[in-house]
Design a binder for these strands. Sequence first.
DNA 1: TATGAATGAGTCTTCATTCAT
DNA 2: TATGAATGAAGACTCATTCAT
Lengths: 218, 218, 218, 218
Amino acid sequence: MTTETLINPSEVAPKRERRKEARPGELLDAALDLFVEKGFSAARVDEVAARAGVSKGTLFLYFQSKEDLFKAVVRENIANKFPTWQEEFITFEGSSADMLRYALVSWWERIGNTRASGITKLVMSEAQNFPEIAEFYQEEVIKPGNALIHRILARGVQSGEFRDLDLEQAVHIIVAPMIFLMMWKHSMGACATSAKIVDPEQFIHMQVDVLLHGMTAK
Amino acid sequence: MTTETLINPSEVAPKRERRKEARPGELLDAALDLFVEKGFSAARVDEVAARAGVSKGTLFLYFQSKEDLFKAVVRENIANKFPTWQEEFITFEGSSADMLRYALVSWWERIGNTRASGITKLVMSEAQNFPEIAEFYQEEVIKPGNALIHRILARGVQSGEFRDLDLEQAVHIIVAPMIFLMMWKHSMGACATSAKIVDPEQFIHMQVDVLLHGMTAK
Amino acid sequence: MTTETLINPSEVAPKRERRKEARPGELLDAALDLFVEKGFSAARVDEVAARAGVSKGTLFLYFQSKEDLFKAVVRENIANKFPTWQEEFITFEGSSADMLRYALVSWWERIGNTRASGITKLVMSEAQNFPEIAEFYQEEVIKPGNALIHRILARGVQSGEFRDLDLEQAVHIIVAPMIFLMMWKHSMGACATSAKIVDPEQFIHMQVDVLLHGMTAK
Amino acid sequence: MTTETLINPSEVAPKRERRKEARPGELLDAALDLFVEKGFSAARVDEVAARAGVSKGTLFLYFQSKEDLFKAVVRENIANKFPTWQEEFITFEGSSADMLRYALVSWWERIGNTRASGITKLVMSEAQNFPEIAEFYQEEVIKPGNALIHRILARGVQSGEFRDLDLEQAVHIIVAPMIFLMMWKHSMGACATSAKIVDPEQFIHMQVDVLLHGMTAK
DNA sequence: TATGAATGAGTCTTCATTCAT
DNA sequence: TATGAATGAAGACTCATTCAT
């Protein structure tokens, strides 16, 4: 997406001229869709090229191989949303419970509910065949994401709002359902009959509720 | 396979062994490994056959096609899991909290921690390319599994042990982390560096703890 | 067909015991059907065996290879009908025109209209891939057949009934339509829509009529 | 093919030649030879491609499947034959006997004696396995051909030159020997020893002679 | 830079043939 | 002699990749 911002965010060239510059971006864009939709092997480079409006040969002008394209797709789409996000939390005022709720809800809006979630599906599905991608993802996405959650939890524990948890573990408790949500959306959730089984918004809402208060009656 | 031939080369492995009864199982076994390890398309039928100690032709004697083999693998590894399990819960005595904890822990022992968990990873990764498999899995695995959890929760609510939850939703809250666990184990978890990041036993333990009591300090 | 007559025409053994002796015949029988129906390569040895009521392995007990089976089928079915037939003509009384008509009509009844005609289709279709079969067929069937016709024509010429023809050539004029008839029956004629286009009996009738009297108005 | 490379090795044949327009024709050409020579199943797509001077992959660039190629070969070699021919007969002046003779002789020159005759052999040999081809052939070749003959005969009958025949049947009498000729040429006739047994020109000549005047002495 | 025709290694699948039982 | 499970060579077809234009 929006590769032009990466390449040259300042000037908006006329369509025809911008084209050449935009090629790799358009290819990555098409590739993301196709990889998410069909997986690495079932996605055909012909179709990626076609969807990007170029010929197959052109694709190989920008990417050495299909694997290379795949890696670029993942790399490109693991946008560093975390830095800007982090700032929000530094200046966040309110309870840590609200903060957690806000984190998950806005995560859904900005990541889970966008095409970016397809990346997670992709990476997890193909991790075995692309260990370096998995590694990369771990470093660039999972770790920063976890750090963010970690900070929120630590704030809550410190303020006495949350009880004294093993934070390393607790982070997983928070993150796991979100990852599940992305996987589900792009696998079972994409199959007609079972589509409505998990409703993400409701799911997140109750998730936070249960996480904070538990299921046990008082 | 045939490690004994390697260890004991004097006992020549018979070239043509007739094991009609055993073959499908052996093939299914090898296929499960390979499919989980590499995914559907990256797995080669030659290798499945080789790992089962038969020729490629033999594989097609028992399974019409690679896809057919895939379906058989899924079917084979999920049947007969729930019926016996369900009975245990009917006769369970103790608190519903204990019941829930028992359910998740024994789930981990019997499914999550066995090769069967690879099936879930497999199905979710390939769901888009095999909608019928996804459908089948939904019906044969997800639904019965959810029903089991539903029963436990209903029991807890009825006894006043749990608060009055939207059970349909609550079921997902319980199940999601387990599915995550299987996905993780067979994707990121299988990559060296990040292997130890999530420890399943600890994860489940804390999961139950938080689910039951929440994170909020009293 | 009726291989038992070839093997042991004198004694009629009970079904079960005759079986063993009859095997090759039953196989040839089934093979003839299948080869005629589907051609050499499209015919499957499994099906031949199945149709003969034996296992595939048994087939190879009697025939070294599929090619061997094919050759045996052709050889077996090129029954020497000519010797007995020839006698009929030696004692034939009547005009040579009647003789010719009788020859063609009875040929249709005894050969053209029986499964034997399938052999011709078979041999002609596969001649390129089985030159020795073609050669064999030429010697065993075509030549004796031609000789028979030759004799009739010679008789007619000698008696002054027919005009003085180049007999070698004239024979082909007679034989060609009969061969055509067999080919047609087992190719185009076997396809639904065009089935009724050529009616053999009528065809032969007119053929003789035209051959004898010509089309030219007197 | 590329005999010039053999004759003149200094001119190195370019490895990748772009000849989009020419390819299908070259492939069809090679395929015709091979199909006629070996039959549908015995012909290998690799060899067709090789004979056309391209790689196997290229063949599948132009034809979806081997069967598709087969159909194209049949189609290619029978279109545009009859339309131009038909015109000749409309303007034909002379006796109907001459017309018939001319029809058969020129048929031999333009069809029977060219590679196109192999198509008939092909279609009749494979008719059972390709009913649609048979149907197609019936419609596109047999029917127009028959119509042509029908017209000649009708002309002759009308002018009183021929006696009053059942034209539908009479057409078959004329056509059958021609079809026989094609079958023979590409089956028995292609085998060394029996090659000269039927001489087409003589055969046609006598055929017309006999058809027109009959064999019976006046 | 862009094209798309051409390539050929690689895959699934078939089926005649073998062989332990 | 009969079986049918097992084989593996061979074939059609795919598709990422190349390269002449």
